[in-house]
Every structure is written in C-alpha cells, then in structure tokens.
Design a protein around this nucleic acid. Structure first.
Lengths: 339, 339
DNA sequence: TTGAAAGCGCTAACAT
DNA sequence: ATGTTAGCGCTTTCAA
C-alpha cells in the first residue's frame, strides 16, 4: 500500500542519506545557497522529488525564530463584515504572490479573544502582523509595536506609537454622504455609529457634524446613536430613530452591517425608501445594486486596503529600519436610489 | 525601557532557573501533570506570571508531532461566499471553546492554491483538517484521508474513501425550491449551476429535474447553465437565460453568489421580479429580506454545518478509531417575495 | 564545496 | 517528587 506513505513526513536527513550527502548540503540546496556543486545540487533535487520531500515549517521556524519564515498573522475584528473579507482577500493575494502563508484570527470584537489570538500569533513566531486594534489605546498591540515585531495597522490607528498604518478618509467620506443628504433636502439626518471607541467611528461622526453645520442644519443629539458595529445594533438603533417623536427622515449608517440591520427594520415596518426614510451607508457592497432600493453608499477601497497593508508589512519585514508610513486611501460616493 | 522586553520570548528554562527547579518540572506544571508538589507548583506558577512566560507553540509542535497540539487546519473554497463565512464561524466557535487555534486557508476554487495550502497545513503539523475538496476525486485530499490524519469533509464528499462528512440535503432542498416555483405556475424554470464537478451542484440539479418531472414540466437543456459558483457567472449566465428566444420565466440559482449575480443582471435590465422573471436561491443570507424584492431561498444551516464538523473533528482527534460518520443536515425553504 | 555538530524550546523516558 | 537527557527537523557556524 504505497499510499500509506504519501504523507508520512520525510525528513531532510532521509534525503541526505539517499543522496549520499550531509544534511547541511540538502539544506543549502533547499535554500538556494550558491555554494553547492551543480552536480550535487541536481542529485539532491532529484532525491527531493523522488521522496516528495517537503520541508517541515515548524522545525524551520523553531530554528530561525528571528529570521523570516514566510508566515504572517492577521487579526480581523469581524469576519462577518464583508468589508473585512475584502481586506482579507487583498492581504491574501499579496501574501500568496510573495509566498507568505497566513494565520487569520477573527476576534469578533472581543478583547479577550483578541488577547488570546495575539498570544498565539506571537507564540507561532509569525514574521509580522496585520491588525485592526480594538481601540487607539490597545495596550496589547502597542506593546507589540514597541517590541519591534513588524506590524501594520489597518482601519484604526494607535496613539503614542509610530506604526505603519492604512486607513481611509473617514471624515471626508462621511462628510460627502451627509452633505449629499442635506443637499437632497433632508432635514433630520441621523447617524448610527459603530463602536464609539474606534477612531473611525469618531472621524465619521465629525464628518457628519461638519456637513450638518455647513448646510445650516442644527445638530440634534437624539439623532446620533452609538452601537457595536453589528447587524443587530443596526436593527435596534434604527428602530429607536424611527420611534422618535420627531423621527429621522434620513439615516447615515456607520458601516456595512449597520446598514443591513437598518434596512431590515425599515422593510419590516413597511416603510418606503427614500420616501418615508432615506438611507446612505458607509461601506459599499458589490451587491448594493440588488438591494431594495439600490443603495447609495460611501465606498471604501477594501481590497486595496488589504493589498497595501500586506505590501507595507512585507517591506518592513525586509527592511525593519525604513521610516513608518501612514497611508490614507480615498473613498467614493456611489449614488444610487436610497436617498 | 522596560517595555522592550514585554514580548521578547521567555523560555521555559528561564522560568526553571528563576524558580530553582528543572525544566521538566516547569513542563509538568504547564501541562498539569499530577506529579508535582503543590508548593513547587505554586512557586513555578508565580514565576510564570512574573516573567509573563508563554509556551512556544512552535517548539511544542515540533516536539510532539504526533500528539495533539491544539491546532486545526481549515480549507475554504471561497471566503467571498457568505455561506462559507458562516461555516467558518461555526468552526471557530467550537475551536475556541475547545482551545484549538485555526489556520484558515482560502483557496478560491484554485486547485494550485489548494495544493499549496494543503502542503503548508501538513507541514505545520496540524492535528486535523476541515476541508471542502474541489471535487469528489480530489486525490490530494484522498491521500490525506488515507494517511490517517484526522479530517472531516464539509459540503462535498470524496469517492472511494471512508471519511467524516457534513453535508445538507442538496437534492431535497433543490426539489422544494423548484417544486414551489412550479406550483406557482412558472413554466420555463431555469437552473444556474455552480461548478458541475461538485457533488452538491449535481445533487441540486437532480432535485431540479425531479421537481420538473413531478410537476409535468418538460426538461429543456437550454435552461440549464453551468458556471463556476461565482458572482460573475451569475451575472453572465442569467443574461444568457434572458436572451433566449424563449426566455426563462423563473431562475433557480445554485448558490449565494450566483443569486447576487443574477439579481444584478435582472436589475440592470430593469426587469421586475417576480412579474418579468422570478428567482429563487440556494443559500439564504440574513439580509435576504433587504433585497429587492425580499428573496425566497433555500436556507442551509451554515453555522451548524461548521459547528458539527468541528465537533466531529475534535472527536476524531480524541478517538481516531471511532467509526466514520456522515451527517446530513436539513434545508428550509424561506418563502418571501421573489417568486 | 562539503561535513560535523550545536542549538532553537519543548516533552517524555528514564533515573534518582 | 524531581532531575537528566535525548531528540523532534532544521540551519548555521566552524572546520576541513
């Protein structure tokens, strides 16, 4: 039964034996060291093929804890959010091109999980990390930055430390959305915020306020609701907004999931969009056109965010000394029919 | 700068030194071996805390290549598909409860990537694997089964080997959808299939055909289109269906992404659903109610699929000898307004 | 150009 | 109850 051995690990020593060389030589061949006799190299490569040898990544990482091992860690706040899925795809594609594997951890906005996964990632000796910290003062992540492990932050910065960062123009994006709403004639424009401790939530809020002011609309605190960036809070907070004595006539939602939640509420109540209430979302989805009605939304270049951050991370791994860069990507208002 | 050391790895030996015991004792404490003097245990635990020692997972895995190391591999065909995201969440929750970490690999239906990731997973010495193979004769996965590594297949089986499996009633789910369509009076019911090499695609097709037959509808080959399970193929194949001389009056879509693609086409053409063309999807989404119109769909218990498969895997890791089980979960027709 | 040998951090015999 | 030690698979001096 030959197949029994198909996946039984073959070690470098077995290759060495069969090729009649030392383990060091096999290692050199694997790592493309120049100091190998071409004939020896050929012979070793031959045996590697025959034996279907694959290097043991675990042993390699243990040995080279401080060198590069082609392994990146990714810490995602919420895999249910299509935005992060797109970011992840961007990261993945770049990683794949550069022969990096990924350990992806989804901590579901749960700080306890975040800590656990962070420990695991470090304990796995990843070469670097892409993370969206739970908030600006996330001490666990700050410590990692200070420790010198290559890291790039996505979507959310960190205070007091210098770190590579990829974000979007949250304030401007929000501004453009709310400004558009105001210009359409809406007067009671509400904002459903994601987790208020996130810089992005606050930046979006300030864009909201500025647009209100610039359009001569008075800010009404009862029209701003703070949630936890999830579908359910979209459902719930939009209900509150619609239950107001003087209800919102338009809602600006702080992210994807909130948008979907708010839509659910609006549809359950049988309200018409935009006639009864208008809605505009932060975060576009590729199927926004198929929503009822086609959703007007602020598009973040999610895939690009992932791509850029992975590029930055790999650069930093290659050159730990290069100055940190902070990258701000533009958003785009996708005008459809929901307001 | 004390923080510089916050994350510099502390080894078991440093703990041993400081506690005045041998490395073996520290190891025993970590692994809750009973043969440790309570006082010694306490002292060691104290030092572990002080030094903020975390075991090095890599060393542990290298050492115990054949024991359990609390690491599972997951091989996902398409992370853009919300169905798999839900499956993943189910897996994750069970893994987290049982203190397993996950390496998640998304191979994007690309066999080359699948092979690479499989090799990486094996090379990382995972304790077990949850995989959705590219097709029934996926030799790479079959070999893994034969090698004896614990594995459970999700959504798609394997021919010729006995393997733990979690699937849904694809035929019945499809049947109920198409039957519903037929009973509503639709005559030209089309099917947009995902990758035809997937067992699930073919089972859904047979449910489609059976429902047609049972309702006295003749099967028309031009109404069946085969795609690659992606959004784009939904866009394209629905166009073909609508361009037919005698076009479809209802479309049964083979998965989530195809549904979204078909909706896009229908909306771009300004067609009304269900008056001009009806649609029913395999796979529900929690925001289906917010689509235009609220989508009627066959719901798969995605989270449950993930949960069950992770449970099965952990069971098998614990007891490699237990007989294989094949689990078939039920689907549910969610009737809304798209047909 | 090649080989011998040490060591990464951990666990499990085995010995005490 | 505790310690000594070998070895998991790999890379990298150092020596030849």
């Amino acid at each position: 039964m030959a197949y029994e051995n198909d996946y039984k690990a073959v070690s470098l020593y077995e290759v060495a034996d069969k090729a009649g060389v030392s383990s060091a030589t096999v290692s050199r061949v694997i790592n493309n060291s120049p100091n190998v006799n071409p004939e020896t190299r050929l012979r070793v490569q031959q045996v590697i093929k025959e034996l279907r040898y694959t290097p043991n990544r675990v042993a390699k990482r243990l040995r080279n804890r401080n060198a590069s091992n082609n392994l990146l860690g990714v810490l995602i706040p919420d895999i249910q959010n299509p935005f992060y899925v797109e970011v992840l795809r961007g990261i993945e594609d770049v990683a794949y091109e550069n022969k990096y594997a990924l350990i992806v951890c989804n901590f579901s906005q749960d700080e306890k999980k975040e800590k656990l996964y962070l420990d695991i990632l470090l304990s796995e000796s990843v070469d670097g990390l892409i993370a969206a910290p739970t908030h600006e003062n996330d001490q666990k992540v700050i410590n990692i930055v200070k420790s010198g492990l290559p890291i790039v932050c996505v979507d959310r910065g960190l205070t007091g430390v210098d770190v590579d960062l990829v974000v979007v123009e949250n304030r401007n994006g929000a501004y453009s959305a709310v400004d558009f709403l105001a210009k359409q004639g809406y007067k009671r424009i509400a904002y459903i915020s994601g987790l208020p401790q996130l810089p992005s939530s606050r930046q979006r809020e300030s864009g909201y306020k500025d647009a209100l002011a610039d359009n001569g609309l008075v800010f009404d605190g009862s029209l701003v609701k703070y949630g936890d960036s999830r579908h359910e809070s979209g459902v719930k907070l939009s209900e509150e907004l619609l239950n107001l004595e003087n209800p919102a006539d338009a809602i600006f939602t702080g992210n994807n999931l909130i948008t979907l939640g708010a839509l659910e509420t609006i549809h359950k109540r049988g309200l018409r969009i935009p006639d009864d209430v208008a809605i505009i979302g932060f975060d576009d989805m590729y199927w926004s056109i198929s929503l009822n009605p086609p959703l007007t939304a602020v598009r973040q270049p999610a895939y690009e965010i992932g791509k850029r951050s992975a590029e930055l991370l790999i650069q930093r791994i290659t050159d730990p000394a290069r100055p940190t860069v902070s990258m701000t990507l533009k958003t785009e208002l996708m005008i459809r029919n929901s307001c």
